[in-house]
């Protein structure tokens, strides 16, 4: 048996939106303790690592460990119909193996959708030793990434002892964005060594924009020419992290 309920539909909608930046279909690991998901996008460039303990939900009923694979894009379409202050309940209809989505608010809506064959693959977390780590407001990060994306489609991120620097060079324009000690958006930095890596903005913009709706504080970890880890602090011990592989110079 599996049934969850949130009184604020936005919570679920924002979480599914964040996952949907990388995945069209997602296999959730559901246990008595909560819901987890770890998956890579089809091109294996980025990974989402997500965890919501049962206490985030207003109601959480799970009788046994199971895998639940859903078409995220379809689910999102339904959730987008829900308004703030409306409650959403998801429950698994065991006989038919369909997911029932109930939105309660001004009126009652019940949708159902098929569950898919779960993907059994266990995805390990990338083994990276991060040499630089910075904490910033998610909003500040979102603004900075939107700034650089005006001039190019990739960005060079550097973290040293006192700041994060983002550089982009486009056809006509260039941009340098600094977030440093003393800035409102800047919360702290820890560096073993100055680290620099390049990343595709098409991924970063999508991820950060969606994650910003779920989180106020972000932690960015990098090492030179290694994947970046972005962790978006969730309420009540939830977890939402993304890994993104770097772009590296050819030759």
């Amino acid at each position: 048996m599996f049934r969850i309920r949130v009184t604020d539909a936005m919570l679920l909608r924002d979480m599914i939106t964040a996952i949907s930046t990388l995945l069209d279909e997602a296999t959730f690991d559901i246990s008595t303790g909560g819901i987890k998901l770890r998956a890579m996008d089809p091109s294996r460039v980025a990974m989402v690592d997500f965890e919501w303990p049962k206490k985030i939900f207003d109601e959480y009923v799970c009788s046994e460990t199971m895998k639940l694979c859903l078409n995220i894009s379809e689910l999102l379409k339904l959730l987008k119909r829900a308004r703030r202050e409306e409650s959403v309940e998801l429950s698994l209809e065991e006989k038919t193996n369909r997911l029932q989505i109930t939105i309660k608010g001004k009126y009652l809506r019940t949708f159902n959708m098929p569950t898919l064959e779960p993907i059994e693959e266990e995805v390990p977390i990338p083994k990276v030793t991060f040499n630089a780590k910075a904490e910033i407001t998610t909003e500040g990060l979102r603004q900075a990434i939107e700034d650089v994306s005006l001039v190019s489609d990739h960005v060079r991120i550097e973290i040293d002892d006192e700041k994060i620097t983002m550089r982009a060079t486009g056809d006509l324009m260039g941009a340098t964005i600094e977030l440093k000690k003393g800035d409102v958006a800047f919360l702290g930095v820890e560096t073993k060594e100055v680290s620099i890596a390049n990343f595709s903005l098409s991924y970063l913009v999508e991820i950060i924009k969606a994650a910003a709706a779920t989180s106020e504080i972000a932690t960015m970890e990098i090492s030179t020419d290694m994947p970046i880890r972005l962790d978006f602090k969730q309420q009540q011990e939830g977890k939402l992290s993304f890994y993104l592989a770097p772009r590296i110079d050819v030759e």
Binding site: R44, H154, R247, D249, V250, E251
Partner: peptide, 19 residues
């Protein structure tokens, strides 16, 4: 052409994968 050159330069950095 500058545009063609720039796009070629951009393609000179390669997207890596996580695994």
């Amino acid at each position: 052409w500058k545009t063609a050159k720039r796009l070629k330069n951009e393609a000179d950095t390669k997207q890596t994968k996580l695994t």
